[in-house]
Simulated scan of single mutants.
Amino acid sequence: MSETPSPQDREVVARQLGRTPRALTGVAHRCPCGQPDVVQTAPRLEDGTPFPTVYYLTCPRATAAASRLESAGLMKEWQADLGTDPELAAAYTRAHEAFLATRDAVDVLPTRASAGGMPDRVKCLHALAAHALAAGPGVNPIGDRALAGMGEWWAHGPCAAPQTGADQGAS
């Protein structure tokens, strides 16, 4: 369950992303440092364009960790596992259905596509890790694998340093 983002959360997410977040509706997970690392987004952008992502990984350190896994070829390896492990494939399909149920509770989109290539492909570990963090362990098996491989991205403290009074007054 995501929480309503505070003005400070919105500011932190904007600094994490380097831009104003789009369609932000909630903080879906907080890093152990206390800052948002996954946000929940509306199924449509402000202009009505479908935005099927729902969970968005915002912490640049977590994003870099997911990118390292993608560069190491794990998407291809885990895609192959879906073809040879029926239990994994069934759990991944259930993750897709849970994702769609969350999205559909807000707005039903014309696409049944969901994050990260679910239910048939492993396409984006960032999206799958975000879903796993937001939904909790055991919901998205590929997202759980990604999280296990990402290490402790939070170990060096907050990725977005708090603004000081001088920073807040600058334009």
Rank of each mutant, 00 (worst) to 15 (best):
residue 119 P to N: 00
residue 50 P to G: 03
residue 28 A to S: 10
residue 35 Q to E: 06
residue 138 G to V: 02
residue 16 Q to P: 07
residue 62 A to H: 11
residue 3 E to G: 08
residue 88 L to V: 12
residue 107 D to I: 01
residue 143 G to C: 12
residue 92 Y to N: 15
residue 82 L to H: 07
residue 155 A to D: 13
residue 6 S to Q: 02
residue 86 P to C: 10
residue 50 P to D: 08
residue 101 A to S: 01
residue 39 V to M: 05
residue 156 H to V: 05
residue 114 S to G: 08
residue 46 E to N: 03
residue 41 T to F: 00
residue 36 P to Y: 12
residue 117 G to F: 15
residue 110 P to H: 08
residue 168 Q to T: 15
residue 116 G to L: 11
residue 71 S to G: 09
residue 67 S to Y: 07
residue 74 L to C: 08
residue 1 M to N: 10
residue 87 E to M: 04
residue 146 A to Y: 12
residue 56 Y to M: 03
residue 97 E to F: 01
residue 159 C to P: 06
residue 45 L to Y: 07
residue 97 E to V: 01
residue 70 E to R: 10
residue 152 E to R: 13
residue 163 Q to L: 15
residue 115 A to N: 03
residue 53 T to P: 00
residue 99 F to Y: 07
residue 51 F to I: 02
residue 84 T to P: 04
residue 54 V to W: 02
residue 168 Q to M: 14
residue 37 D to I: 06
residue 1 M to R: 13
residue 82 L to E: 11
residue 69 L to F: 14
residue 19 R to L: 02
residue 38 V to P: 03
residue 136 G to C: 02
residue 66 A to N: 06
residue 114 S to R: 05
residue 69 L to T: 13
residue 7 P to D: 12
residue 14 A to V: 04
residue 14 A to T: 05
residue 19 R to S: 01
residue 138 G to Q: 06
residue 100 L to T: 00
residue 23 A to C: 09
residue 131 H to F: 11
residue 63 T to W: 07
residue 121 R to D: 10
residue 7 P to V: 01
residue 73 G to S: 13
residue 114 S to D: 01
residue 2 S to V: 04
residue 118 M to H: 07
residue 23 A to N: 11
residue 5 P to G: 03
residue 90 A to D: 04
residue 104 D to A: 01
residue 53 T to N: 02
residue 37 D to P: 06
residue 140 N to A: 06
residue 163 Q to S: 13
residue 1 M to V: 12
residue 3 E to V: 08
residue 57 L to A: 06
residue 112 R to G: 04
residue 158 P to T: 09
residue 65 A to P: 00
residue 107 D to R: 00
residue 79 Q to T: 12
residue 18 G to K: 07
residue 166 A to H: 10
residue 102 T to Q: 10
residue 139 V to T: 15
residue 12 V to K: 05
residue 79 Q to Y: 09
residue 56 Y to Q: 04
residue 49 T to Y: 00
